[in-house]
Write a protein that binds this DNA or RNA. Sequence first.
DNA 1: GTCTATATTCTGATAGAC
DNA 2: GTCTATCAGAATATAGAC
Lengths: 183, 183
Amino acid sequence: METAWEIARSDGLAALTLRAVAERIGMRSPSLYSHFDSKNAIYDAMFAEGWADLRSLTDRTLRRASVPRRMLLQLAELFFDFATDDLARYQLMNQRTIPDFQPSEQGYAESLAAYDGMRSWLRDAGVTHATDLDLWTALLGGFVDQQLANDPGGDRWRRQLVRLVDMYCTEVGVPGPQLRRTR
Amino acid sequence: METAWEIARSDGLAALTLRAVAERIGMRSPSLYSHFDSKNAIYDAMFAEGWADLRSLTDRTLRRASVPRRMLLQLAELFFDFATDDLARYQLMNQRTIPDFQPSEQGYAESLAAYDGMRSWLRDAGVTHATDLDLWTALLGGFVDQQLANDPGGDRWRRQLVRLVDMYCTEVGVPGPQLRRTR
DNA sequence: GTCTATATTCTGATAGAC
DNA sequence: GTCTATCAGAATATAGAC
C-alpha cells in the first residue's frame, strides 16, 4: 500500500501498475495476488484508506465547543490541506479518474462515514439543512480543485479560506463576528 | 475528432485509444498519423476545441447591459450546463486526469482566451479584483464537480446556482436586489 | 492518404512448482 | 507466500508499398 501511494503520487494515479509496485518492494508482480484479488482491489483499499485517514485526522484535530466560525474555519483548513497535500489521493477519493474503478461496498461505507463526521461538525455549528451541507462541500471542493489545478504547491486559494468561511457563515446564518476584517 | 469525443464520453477519457477511434470510422489506426502526430496531439486538439466551444457559446448566448446579477446568473448557468454536459470534456479541460498530457502552447492559449472572455463579463458586472475572480472560478468549479461526482444527470447543485450567485454578488459588492426570495 | 506488416513494450492475470 | 513461466491482449508508433 505504501508503495502504491508513492507511485500514484509521483507518476499519476493511472500510472500505477502491479509490476511497478512489486519491483519497488523487491517482489514479482504475481506475488501481489496473494494479498489483493486484482488491481482494482488495490485502488479500492487506497480509496478506503484515504477516507479513513481523513476521518481520523478530523477526529484527532478538531475540538468541539469552540466559536462556531472558528471551528468551521478549522474544518475547512483541515480538509483543504489534506486534499491538496496529495493530488492522486484526491482524484481517487473524489473524482472518477480511473475508468473501471468503482469503490466496493466497504470503501463506499468509509466515505459515507467520513461524510457523516463532517456533518456532525457542521451540526455543532448550527448547520443542518441538506442544501447548506451541499453548499459547504461544493465550496470546499471548488477551492481544492482550483488550488490543485492552477496553483499546485502554492496558496492562491488557500489564503482565501477565511473569506470563504465568513461568506458561508453569513449565507447559512452561523452567528458570530466576521473572522476577517478586510478584503 | 467527433469519434474521439464519443469514445471519451462513453468509455472515459483514459479509455480513448487510436485503434478504437480508427475502427469506428472504418480506418486502421496507423492512418490516423496522417492527421495527428501522436495520441496526445488528439487530446490537445480536444482540449483546444473544448475551450473554443465554451468561448463561442458564451459570446453567442450572453447579452451585455442587462442587470449585473442576472447576467452573472446567466454566465454561471451557461458554464455549469456546459461543464456538466460532458464529464470527459470537463476532466480534460480542468483536471489533470491523463498523466502524460500537457496542453500545447496553442491549446493553453485557447484556455486563456476563454478565461479572458469570462473576465470581461465579470468586469461588466463590476468585478475586477483578482481575488474576486479566483473566488468565482472556485465557486463555479466546485458546483460542477459536486454535480458530476455525486449527482450525475441530476440537479442537486444546479438548482442552488441562484443562491450561489446571490451569495457571491453580496460578497464582492455587486449591486442590485437578491434574485431569490427564500432558501 | 490509406494500407499491411511489424516493432516494441507494457498490461493484468493465471498455472503450477517449491 | 513467493517464485518462474507464460498467456492473451492491448497500446503507441514506424516502415514502406500502393
